[in-house]
């Protein structure tokens, strides 16, 4: 189900992407829209072809909120590479995002 939602977001060419990211958003709220745009541009810039990004609308799947311990949204979870990191907010602070993704230059 999640995979289906994430379809089309698959930008990696390899079979196992190095970066596995999941972004939880709430519909089309300004924060959500900004977050989606920001992560896309970051991924395209720094992780071209090496990532998978799954965008999940929590409104559509509210049961996920408890499973995934969601509180603050938007939330980006970096599943791989380990350690797992959680980034909340609209991802506008690019430096922090890069650092947390392990992409600091």
């Amino acid at each position: 189900m999640k995979e289906k939602q994430a379809a089309g977001e698959q930008a990696g060419h390899e079979e196992t992407p190095e970066w596995v990211l999941r972004l939880f958003i709430t519909g089309a709220t300004p924060n959500s829209v900004r977050a989606v745009n920001n992560i896309r541009s970051i991924c395209d810039t720094y992780l071209e072809g090496r990532y998978s990004l799954q965008i999940i609308d929590v409104y559509q799947e509210p049961e996920l909120a408890q499973q995934e311990q969601l509180i603050a949204l938007p939330l980006l979870i970096k599943k791989f590479p380990l350690p797992e990191r959680r980034l909340i907010g609209d991802l506008s602070e690019t430096d922090k995002v890069l650092k947390s993704l392990g992409l600091s230059i």
């Binding site: 924060n31 900004r34 311990q69 603050a72 907010g89």
Partner: peptide
Amino acid sequence: DHVHVDRSEIEETGEYDLDGLFIRLGYA
């Protein structure tokens, strides 16, 4: 529903809200 919040795991990278909590509670 046990809400787990740990600052060390969380990085704040901009504007956010607590919709996650609302959705969780609403769903429950």
